Structures are given as structure tokens and as C-alpha cells.
Simulated assay, not measured.
Amino acid sequence: MTLRRDFNAISKLRHYLQVLAFTLVVATLQYAFMPDKPYGPPVVYSVLIGTFTWAIIDLGRELMPSAAETGWPQGWQGIALVVAGIVIGYLAGTRLADALCVYYFHFYPAGASLSGADQRTSILITAIAGLVGSYYFYAIHKSAYLEDKMAEARMHASEARLKLLETQLEPHMLFNTLANLRVLIGTDPARAQEMLDRMIAYLRATLTASRSTQHPLAHEFERLRDYLELMAVRMGPRLTYTLDLPDALREVPVPPLLLQPLVENAIRHGLDPQVEGGLITVRASTRAEPDGPHLVIEVNDTGVGLPDELPTPGPGQSFGLTQVRERLATLHGAAGTLDLIAASAGGTSASVVFPLKSSTHP
């Protein structure tokens, strides 16, 4: 695959500064081996030859189709460009350096010229330095391309894992909802019919939504409202809820169904065992951290509170909490956390925290 790139002046300036540093190293090494000669001439020759060589190769390749993985012309064109750059760089750089060393810096008297041995040494140094420099830039371009590909592969792997976790979560949520419906059918058929209607609407909105790995937090809160209304049919006045989402956080991207398992957990283990039921509050806010602002989403309930020992994750136990933690880890690594806290006034608080700065759509 070949491409033509947009000209990047900053990148070219960075390359040229690297070339200048390399030419000074070459001049210093040359002086170290010949300390009886002045340091000035090697610097002038090295800098000018390096500048012309860089200009021919690095600027010249912008005029030629280049390989996507290296940013360099392919085949004989790339080889010819490097050879032309070294030859022209040596001839032009040496000619200009001769004039400057004689007429401007006065390193040599007029009419002086390099000896045969010095010329051969200069040609050898130019050839070696030109090849080494060209390979260096070739290698860093290829390395950058491979790093981009690896980052892309990691992103696709993360997206695939998020989708896998989501597809595991959807049936879990569906089976739990159907179990609630089954109980209601035997005790109150009219409410069961209303719950079935709401469940159909909820599932249609949830399962036919966008299949992207993230969606705006506002959509997540809308799905929570649908789910809580569905549960309110079964629990009646035993369930009340409050959803608090500031306008500034409505577009923050989160994985679909991130909060639903926490709300389901609050109902199942907090409010259901309590005769009078209780209140669920879902609140989004931000918190300043040393590495930048973090999003904080709290799911609080006024239920029976945490047991003395949480059940071991497994079939039917802590599935939702495990899924939430794995999805946060996939997106945010160690920076994404889920904590369960026993509320001082009774009940439980589940707190989801992750950095706002890394919350981007895929």
C-alpha cells in the first residue's frame, strides 16, 4: 500500500534538528581521532553535508509515493533517493564548506584543497553517516507505524471484549426480569400484564439500541428510568427512586447497561428483603484527582445494607458486579473502580469512578 502524506513542517523541523545533532557528533568523533587538526572545519563540513543530504532525502521523499508502513518510497526508488541524497549532499556540502572555510572562517589559505587521504576519509564518513541516518529515520517511521497498528489492535480487542461482556449481561438481565414477571403472574395478573407491556417497551429500547461499545450517560439514565418504572409495577409503592444527572455530564460516554446491574442489585439485595421497600438514588458528579477530573456515579439505596460477607462470584452470585468491574477495567484499566460501601444511615452505596479525560467514543 502506498500513500502521499500531508506535509508536516513540525515533523521536518524535528528531523532536521536530529540531523544537526548527528552531524555534530560525527564532527566531534572525527576531531577525537585527529586532535592535531582544528575542530572548526569538521563541524562546517559535517553540518553542511548533513544539511544537503537531509534536504534531498527527507524533503525529496515527500514528492514520491511512499509505503504506508514506513513512510519511505518502495523498492529502487527509495534506494536511488538515498544514494542521490548522499552524493549530492557530499558534492554540494563540500563545495560550500570549501568556500566558507577559506573566505569566511579563514581556516585555510586561498587555493588550499584537501589531500587525497582527507578526501577519501570525508567520502567514507559521508557515506556511512548518510546510510546510518537514513536507516534511523526509516526505522523510527516503521516503529511508529507498528505502534499505531498495535494500538489499533488493542482498541479492537477492547471493543470486542466490551461487546462480549454486554452480550453476557443482556440475557442475565432478561432472565431476572422474566423471573420477576413469573412471580407476579400468579399473584396479580393485571399488574403482570402491565409489567409485560413495560418489559416489551424496555427490551425494545435496550436490545435494539445502538450496538456501539459506549453511549452518552444521558441514554444510560433513560434506560435506568425505564427499568425502574418496570420494577415499580411489581413493587408498587415499596419502590421510589431519584435520578440526578447534571446537564454538563449528559454526553459523557459510558458502556451500555453499566449501571443497570447496580440498580438491579440494590433492588434484589437491598429493597426486596425489606417489607417497606425503600428509595434508590442514582447521582452523577465529578471529583478532582491529581491526574485530572474523574466521573463519579453513585447508586444509593435505603435497603437492608451489606451482608457481613459478600457472596463469592459465580453462577447467580455477584454476576452484575463482576461484569461492571470487568467492563471498567477493559476501558480504563486500574483507573476505573467500583466500590460497595455500607451507608451510615442504613442501606448500601455503589460508587463507579473513572477518569473523564479518557472517556472517548470508540
Results as ranks from 00 to 15, higher is better:
residue 361 H to F: 07
residue 1 M to L: 10
residue 128 I to A: 13
residue 222 E to Y: 10
residue 334 A to G: 05
residue 344 S to R: 02
residue 107 F to A: 05
residue 342 A to V: 02
residue 251 E to R: 06
residue 115 S to M: 02
residue 136 Y to M: 14
residue 217 L to S: 09
residue 212 S to V: 00
residue 225 R to N: 09
residue 68 A to N: 08
residue 132 V to Y: 06
residue 323 Q to N: 11
residue 119 Q to C: 09
residue 320 G to H: 01
residue 270 G to Q: 05
residue 104 Y to R: 03
residue 291 D to E: 13
residue 3 L to Y: 05
residue 238 R to W: 13
residue 85 G to I: 05
residue 352 V to N: 00
residue 276 E to M: 13
residue 186 G to Q: 03
residue 54 W to D: 08
residue 130 G to K: 14
residue 312 T to I: 03
residue 311 P to W: 01
residue 220 E to L: 02
residue 212 S to K: 06
residue 79 I to T: 12
residue 29 L to W: 14
residue 59 L to G: 08
residue 203 L to Y: 01
residue 130 G to T: 14
residue 334 A to S: 11
residue 151 A to M: 11
residue 344 S to Q: 07
residue 21 A to V: 15
residue 78 G to A: 10
residue 16 Y to N: 11
residue 95 R to H: 00
residue 13 L to Q: 08
residue 273 P to T: 14
residue 106 H to W: 03
residue 92 A to W: 06
residue 69 E to Q: 09
residue 234 R to P: 07
residue 77 Q to G: 12
residue 35 P to K: 09
residue 266 A to E: 11
residue 255 P to F: 12
residue 286 T to V: 11
residue 50 G to M: 07
residue 265 N to W: 07
residue 315 P to L: 13
residue 255 P to V: 15
residue 306 L to S: 07
residue 230 L to S: 09
residue 361 H to M: 06
residue 336 G to H: 01
residue 18 Q to V: 13
residue 46 S to G: 09
residue 236 G to S: 06
residue 53 T to M: 14
residue 277 G to H: 10
residue 280 I to H: 10
residue 65 P to A: 04
residue 51 T to D: 12
residue 211 R to W: 08
residue 112 A to E: 01
residue 36 D to M: 03
residue 221 F to C: 11
residue 258 L to E: 00
residue 342 A to S: 05
residue 165 L to H: 09
residue 135 Y to N: 12
residue 162 L to D: 02
residue 94 T to D: 12
residue 120 R to G: 15
residue 124 L to E: 15
residue 288 A to T: 15
residue 86 I to Q: 14
residue 29 L to T: 08
residue 243 L to R: 13
residue 183 V to W: 01
residue 130 G to E: 12
residue 166 E to Y: 12
residue 213 T to I: 10
residue 275 V to A: 15
residue 79 I to M: 15
residue 29 L to D: 10
residue 317 Q to E: 06
residue 248 A to H: 09
residue 219 H to K: 04
residue 31 Y to D: 08
residue 299 V to P: 00
residue 194 E to V: 00
residue 319 F to M: 02
residue 43 V to Y: 04
residue 134 S to V: 10
residue 158 S to G: 05
residue 54 W to N: 08
residue 172 H to C: 11
residue 42 P to M: 06
residue 96 L to S: 05
residue 350 A to V: 00
residue 342 A to N: 01
residue 39 Y to V: 13
